[in-house]
């Protein structure tokens, strides 16, 4: 069972990485979203899937019985929300780039290059 999860996570990392290396900005954003999901799965996997019981203390007992590991779950929960926020921010940036520059290819988004190459020495600089 864990092996299946591991397989899915690795597969997701591979696909996500493939998409992130694209020049199309939307593909990059979606690829990053895939990577985030994959990492969440990996985090969850550190809890070693043994029991499928949710980590709730049953009525009548004072401590947690045999259940899934609660600690990685707590980590993953906030990670999902923050990953979601990141994806949305990137999408908004893509939108702004499209409105400002009219392109969604990363090799055509070159507004900073127009400022010039920082490695050329200033004429008459401090010597």
């Amino acid at each position: 069972m864990s092996v299946l999860l591991a397989l899915v996570a690795s597969g997701l990392v591979g696909c996500g990485l493939y998409m992130v290396l694209s020049r199309h900005v939307v593909r990059m954003v979606l690829g990053l979203s895939l990577l985030t999901t994959a990492v969440n799965l990996v985090l969850f996997l550190t809890g070693r899937v043994r029991s499928t019981q949710p980590p709730l203390i049953r009525e009548g007992s004072e401590r947690l019985g045999d259940s899934a590991d609660p600690l990685p779950q707590a980590l993953v929960l906030t990670a999902i929300v923050i990953g979601f926020a990141l994806t949305v921010i990137l999408a908004v940036l893509t939108l702004r780039a499209w409105r400002a520059q009219g392109t969604v290819r990363s090799d055509e988004l070159r507004a900073a290059r127009a400022l010039g190459d920082p490695s050329t020495p200033e004429p008459g600089g401090d010597r």
């Binding site: 999860l5 779950q73 993953v76």
Partner: peptide
């Protein structure tokens, strides 16, 4: 769905 199956309903 995976999270649900493996005992993490909150997530």
């Amino acid at each position: 769905l995976e999270f649900l199956t493996y005992g993490a309903p909150d997530i």
